[in-house]
Design a protein around this nucleic acid. Structure first.
Lengths: 224, 224
DNA sequence: CCCGCGTGCTGAACACGTTCAGAAATCTCT
DNA sequence: AGAGATTTCTGAACGTGTTCAGCACGCGGG
């Protein structure tokens, strides 16, 4: 993600931190587009070009923020999931942890979406470079469904975590668009859609649903 | 969409056309990001700033292209739909017409996606300014389901067109990401997902499905 | 003590999208 | 036809993200 991981003298690491901190502070305060690299450099007390020694672009600074939240999520997601065996609540725990990370930083999410939707961007959520973080996210959903009391068809177990991760990506996107007070609409979306998803998972195990389920799985595998 | 719709002398209209044509030619040739406004102006034989008399931004030039395709779609969509009463084929006709419009212009779709995913962009597909074109697109799906031989539950009839339009937006997004030869994966996605969608619509009318269907509809209405 | 050398950083310069004061062209009215 | 008004267009200038030649500083070896 960053330009160099090898040496990183304490001094350099400290400068790097100062730049990230300055960036996050300004993004949150003024918004992503309204904050210039010159602002960030000034706030961090370095020259304009300094940030480019550590980050390849302005957007990569947002990615640095995202990596921080992922670290926090790593600590609290699993405990949150394991509070219950109810499938819906377990999935919800994962989604909630993610949404909460973003709650205080809505103004910089534009930058994240911008990365996310550019098919050519090296930091696209589907790209090679983001694989570790993506797999970790998918892993949380795997944990959520594996420890739940709901019986899940064998053939679904493999793809379901990935599907849920994709679903979560959609929720995040909706969240960014959501300008309702307190993001009420997003909460309603999560409430309603999770209920439906869990219902569908339960139904999918019913005898008559075999062919339909197989068709869904075939489609997913087919398009990768 | 354009700055002024009122006067439009023939001369001005001709300049406008020259700019759009130059832009499309260069976008297609070199890609959206690789084409500069200076390139476009030069190719059109005008000064750098001229394009901004007619268009608010570089992205709006892509929108001009999209409006052209919409015009073509207007002419051929309905005849294409009405070739059959089979629901799946009718929906497919709409999706296919749209995909075909894009086939020759993949390199400029980046610009379109950029508009599409920026929540604050005035030309966002969900925004006020794109309402007419959006409603037209939804209308095609309405035509497709209304004239089909498949019986559709009353309560679904109202929201289904909008849902299908959203589905189509997803397909387009997938298409832009799709780098497989001949965009085979997109074709497979459409094949598989349409089969599923139609299957679900058919099932949704079954006696036992009432509550589930109502829940889906309630969710959609709830989040607008 | 100084010499090289590499990491960390500087700040001017570049290319781009966009703006804008005003020049040119065209239209309108007498 | 001429004066004034309006539309159309010009091109320099601005602010932006990003690049890059090179400076500063610390450190190991002679």
């Amino acid at each position: 993600m960053t330009r160099r991981e090898k040496p990183a003298t304490p001094k350099a690491e400290e400068t790097r931190e100062r730049i990230v901190d300055a960036a996050l502070r300004l993004f949150q305060e003024k918004g992503f587009d309204e904050t210039t690299m010159r602002d960030i450099a000034a706030e961090a007390g370095v020259a304009t070009g300094a940030a480019y020694y550590y980050f390849r672009s302005k957007e990569e600074l947002v990615m640095a923020f995202y990596l921080r939240t992922a670290e926090v999520a790593r600590g609290i997601s699993v405990p949150m999931i394991e509070r219950t065996t109810d499938l819906k609540k377990r999935i919800r725990a994962v989604v909630d942890v993610n949404l909460e990370q973003f709650a205080d930083h809505r103004r910089l999410l534009v930058g994240l979406v911008r990365i996310g939707m550019d098919p050519e961007h090296p930091l696209s959520p589907f790209g090679k470079e983001t694989e570790p973080i993506r797999e970790e996210g998918i892993g949380f959903f795997r944990t959520a469904i594996e420890g739940s009391s709901t019986k899940i068809p064998k053939d679904l177990q493999h793809d379901l975590p990935r599907l849920l991760w994709l679903y979560q990506l959609g929720v995040m996107l909706f969240y960014v668009y959501d300008h309702s007070p307190g993001e009420r609409r997003t909460r309603r979306l999560v409430d309603g859609s999770l209920e439906l998803i869990v219902r569908l998972i339960q139904i999918s195990g019913l005898p008559l649903m075999g062919p339909l389920r197989k068709r869904v799985i075939a489609l997913i595998r087919d398009i990768e």
